[in-house]
Design a protein around this nucleic acid. Sequence first.
DNA 1: AATGAATGAGTATTCATTCAT
DNA 2: GATGAATGAATACTCATTCAT
Lengths: 227, 227, 227, 227
Amino acid sequence: MRKKENHSVTAADAASGKPIRRRDSVATRARIMAVATREFASKGYEGAGTDDIADRASINKRMIYHYFASKERLYLAVLENAYLKARASEATLDLDQMEPLKALQTFVEFTFDSFVQDRTFINLLATENLQKAKVLKKSKSVSSFNSPIIQAMGRILKRGEAQGVIRPGLDPLHLWITLIGICYFFFSNIYTLSVILETQFDKPDVVATRRAHVVDFVMNAVRPHKA
Amino acid sequence: MRKKENHSVTAADAASGKPIRRRDSVATRARIMAVATREFASKGYEGAGTDDIADRASINKRMIYHYFASKERLYLAVLENAYLKARASEATLDLDQMEPLKALQTFVEFTFDSFVQDRTFINLLATENLQKAKVLKKSKSVSSFNSPIIQAMGRILKRGEAQGVIRPGLDPLHLWITLIGICYFFFSNIYTLSVILETQFDKPDVVATRRAHVVDFVMNAVRPHKA
Amino acid sequence: MRKKENHSVTAADAASGKPIRRRDSVATRARIMAVATREFASKGYEGAGTDDIADRASINKRMIYHYFASKERLYLAVLENAYLKARASEATLDLDQMEPLKALQTFVEFTFDSFVQDRTFINLLATENLQKAKVLKKSKSVSSFNSPIIQAMGRILKRGEAQGVIRPGLDPLHLWITLIGICYFFFSNIYTLSVILETQFDKPDVVATRRAHVVDFVMNAVRPHKA
Amino acid sequence: MRKKENHSVTAADAASGKPIRRRDSVATRARIMAVATREFASKGYEGAGTDDIADRASINKRMIYHYFASKERLYLAVLENAYLKARASEATLDLDQMEPLKALQTFVEFTFDSFVQDRTFINLLATENLQKAKVLKKSKSVSSFNSPIIQAMGRILKRGEAQGVIRPGLDPLHLWITLIGICYFFFSNIYTLSVILETQFDKPDVVATRRAHVVDFVMNAVRPHKA
DNA sequence: AATGAATGAGTATTCATTCAT
DNA sequence: GATGAATGAATACTCATTCAT
């Protein structure tokens, strides 16, 4: 009944300096989170069921309530975790150390590539927006989720303008939304687009073409009028 | 939205001098569609319930099955109708009659504005993509939904390149996806963005700022390198 | 919308000397009866649905109520018709003209063969007995259904005893039940027997073997002790 | 009717000194089975409802699905249980220890009497045959249901032939079907027969007469030609 | 005679959640 | 910390039947 993932989890715990808890408890919680993330992402909030989650995590359903109190709170935990992971992985980019244009390109490529690997976050956001962010609003850690990257964007634009490689007048917030959006829509709507346009958009070569287009489009959009 | 049987029914009615609305299958069908569209768009496929739809349409639940056979088929009808409406309203734009850049700008503004008024289509697409287009795949009228606009895009690019006002090398399909995407993401994710960035993105002035940014960004992205 | 069976039905009507009715009405009634018989026999009273019956008879569901007033009354009509047909076909046997043993054998073979061709009657009886003859009790023509054959049985036994070819002491009513029963059970339970005994009992050679066994068994059971 | 888990549960209970009935899965399961058997037997598969079964077993409807997964699986459990009970009670007969004719008579009387007491099995078989054994086919324990008695029949015939008390040429399988059938039909169709023949066939004296007839008929049918 | 629209009570099944141990 | 039993309300869907024309 016990699973092998124990080791890594315990290690992570130890590393983060938390008091040592009974291994089972940590592992069970982690297993619930992993399965719930998959289920919510693939079926939406309504579509995912506590029975399925419990079964697939090989735990008793009651444990979900033991650790998370309710389906909604479990979902919120999943959502917060997704934001944390996204931000944490953005934080490794070190955009401030790069040339401004290189920084923008890197950010776009990073965003695009993160969606190629895993659309979990996209699906969670789709679900949450369908509910008008009803659950996310209840989060307490929300405020810490997004600001840094907007500010980083601002610093890039400033440096770029100063160097004359980026045209002035770009708003960091809206630029950020735009860059994400260009990457996002292709993946968030990949299934309906594939049906409507009768093309398989998730084939590697199509994805590669798309990636090139996105980078090219953005680079041209931010360049000064006469280089 | 109206069906062909209208003619005969209305004609017969007029002829017999009876009051217009009796046991009006067309009206009932239309009422179900209208309510279902609202419900599916606001709650997703799983979230919307046949009981609610029936209640809100003031019809007997059984009628849904009389006219649409199943919840899924009703949802598909709603989805197809949304595509048809979207394409029909795009078709009124007459892009081929405009200057290339003007045409692009008009298309972007039109797309953006259509989302301002009504996020129904966005929500239906979100729901459908969560289900990997499971239902849309079953549509028989699908093929007629999207091609014309991509071709129009191609003609605009061609004219723009010829006139030297649009840079060469842009792919019409990917350009179309990008333009839609830039408009789309802001609205599809407006609730989570509002929470995360602690801003109310649906306030008119924010929307106006966003609109200007989008148009500006696109116009700069398609311009030739040295004008 | 009209069907070809019209002719035969009308002919039958004419032959029976009834006043000529509008053909459609007769045909519709007949079509409902035919389909309902099939449906009730194959699915039981609960299992058969008025929707299905209407669809398969290519008539409007309302017609069932027009002609038969309710599902139960339709079912009763089907049941009465089945009894009438069974008795009518028994009446063609002319058992009184045969040698007593020959008459018994003929009756057994006739009963057995009638089940080979068509298990409709068996299924209707199964359904009706599950309901404790709730519906049949309401029939008004019931009394005329069965007596003649029991009396015929009595005459055969009398003649057989007199001739010394049938042992005395056999009760005509119970003999009749026994003869029917020996034929009946094999067919009424053919599906469960086939599964339990892992044999396909409806294969022609198995049926033939069964028929021979039944005749042999009965003939031996009625014979006088010392021939 | 009781299950093996009883022992451990009861033992544990006794050991811990707790009151006997707590949240007793065995009892609940058994109660559902008992009620379901009654309901399916008296109303057929379609006629019996999960709501009724739950109410009459004084359990929450959800429990049916907890223990049996679906109405069909519950019905299958009921069916298998009925076969097991029937075979188990047959097994107590010890036919091999009796004189051949006595053994046949005992088997017939036993079969007849088992139907007098309880027509549950008959009704379940009627229901199942109406569905063409659709459910029984899915049983995994089916094969073990019937073979022993046929073989016992074979041994009786062999002994009887050797002793010259049973005529040769009787097939054990068909003899078994015939013996059951003679008993079965009277009870399976007792309601329709009672209506048609305007007699109450379930009155004790009629049943007794029938029993005597059946035994007499069978004994005469198996006897050698010249005693 | 015939039709399609409409109804309300019913079906099996699933849901998130809580209780007892 | 963990479990299996238990719950009641909700789900999509079907039923026999009646209404209006």
